[in-house]
């Protein structure tokens, strides 16, 4: 028996919004420790890694590990039927071929359930090596989303250069070029608005804007985002999900021939 309960459906809605642009379907691996998802997008350029810890749920029970393959468009249709403040419970029997979502309104006067067929996705898992990154940038997630959205208008590729002075995002295309420089802030009062950079050595890497735009669909999950970079390895864009876990996106760089 698997059962996981969250008092606010809003969180699960946001999680789904954060992955469904990159993935059509995904396997949710459920175990005693929580729910994990790891999947590449169709082009195998990016990888999504989601962890929802069991202790972050209001109720969590997983008697036997199970993998639930879900069509994310179908899951999205179901979650749209929940109000943000509904309690949501995800349930499945051991070896089941369906999963059930139960939504309960705050006053319990409305209870709905939606059963969805599971899929056999046979997704491969990749080993993600531990990396000591050359640069780790932390900034407001809204600021990152704004920069990516603004620059993507002017080209397909963004060059991210990080030095100890700051981080520069540059794009060039048919119209011309655009640069956004962010300096490290010393704004200790407003930590949430600060930009911080931990740098071992400077890094310059190029990435496809379209994937960064997809990653910023996670913005509602967290006020902060962390970008981790080292030369010639994938960028990691991480959003913490308060008291529940995190979503990490890995993006393969564009490299010279």
């Amino acid at each position: 028996m698997f059962e996981a309960r969250l008092t606010s459906a809003a969180t699960l809605k946001k999680v789904l919004e954060a992955v469904k642009e990159l993935l059509n379907e995904a396997s949710f691996d459920c175990s005693d420790s929580g729910i994990q998802l790891q999947a590449m997008d169709n082009s195998h350029v990016s990888l999504v890694s989601l962890t929802l810890r069991s202790d972050g749920f209001d109720k969590y029970r997983c008697d036997r590990s199970l993998t639930m393959g879900m069509n994310l468009a179908s899951m999205s249709k179901i979650l749209k039927c929940a109000n943000n403040d509904d309690t949501v419970t995800i349930k499945a029997q051991d070896d089941a071929d369906t999963v059930t979502f139960v939504f309960e309104s705050k006053k319990q006067e409305k209870i709905s359930d939606y059963e969805m067929k599971l899929m056999n996705l046979d997704q491969e898992h990749l080993g993600i090596p531990e990396t000591d990154f050359s640069c780790v940038i932390r900034m407001p997630s809204v600021e990152f989303a704004r920069i990516v959205r603004d620059l993507a208008q002017f080209g397909e590729t963004v060059l991210i250069c990080c030095t100890k002075e700051g981080v520069k995002f540059s794009v060039s295309g048919d119209v011309g070029s655009a640069n956004v420089k962010l300096a490290q802030t010393n704004n200790f009062d407003k930590e949430e608005e600060s930009v911080s950079i931990e740098m071992q050595e400077p890094v310059s890497l190029s990435f496809a804007c379209q994937y960064l735009i997809s990653f910023t669909k996670a913005t509602p999950l967290s006020p902060r985002v962390q970008l981790s970079m080292s030369s010639n390895v994938p960028l990691v864009v991480e959003y913490e999900i308060a008291e529940l876990g995190y979503i990490r996106y890995y993006l393969a760089p564009k490299i010279e021939d």
Binding site: M40, L47, H125, L126, P129, V233, P234, A252, K254, E256
Partner: peptide, 14 residues
């Protein structure tokens, strides 16, 4: 010019 690499060239199958 630059080419898009893939995740599979950095992370290996488990």
């Amino acid at each position: 010019d630059k080419n898009q690499s893939t995740i599979g060239s950095f992370f290996k199958k488990k």
